[in-house]
Design a protein around this nucleic acid. Structure first.
Length: 110
DNA sequence: CAGTTGACACCGT
DNA sequence: AACGGTGCCAACT
């Protein structure tokens, strides 16, 4: 798995996100050991579509809980549909009760 | 090898 | 408080 390195880490964490929960790019970046590389996370998720495995990238949003990456999904509101399907309310491309649904990867370590 | 990119985050105005 | 510009790190071309 070191072949992909950073990318794989992002995928791993993204896959670890519990259903009905969401996280931020910065949280993932910090978890993998590169705080500030939030932009990298976005790029990894962008390539995630190239991965054979499905990555729940819809559970990853920016720090304000906005579906910034929604545009990159195949469909228009696919990202929102998936989140709503998991019990998360989305309004204006923003996650309602974001803090409530927020899941910190570091918290899983404890 | 060097430059540019990228689904962000933070600081300054 | 809201908006804009800059900074980060790693991968891609």
């Amino acid at each position: 798995m070191k072949n992909d390195g950073f990318f794989t880490k992002v995928y791993e964490v993204t896959l670890l996100i519990p259903t009905g929960r969401v996280t931020t790019y910065g949280a993932i970046a910090s978890y993998i050991g590169s705080p500030g590389a939030a932009r990298m996370v976005g790029w990894a998720l962008n390539n995630c579509q190239n991965q054979d495995e499905f990555i729940p990238a819809h559970r990853v949003v920016n720090r304000i809980g906005m579906l910034s990456g929604k545009q990159h999904f195949q469909g228009r509101n696919v990202m929102q549909q998936l989140l709503e399907s998991e019990g998360i309310s989305i309004v204006d491309n923003q996650v309602q009760n974001f803090e409530k649904h927020f899941w910190n990867p570091n918290q899983d370590l404890v």
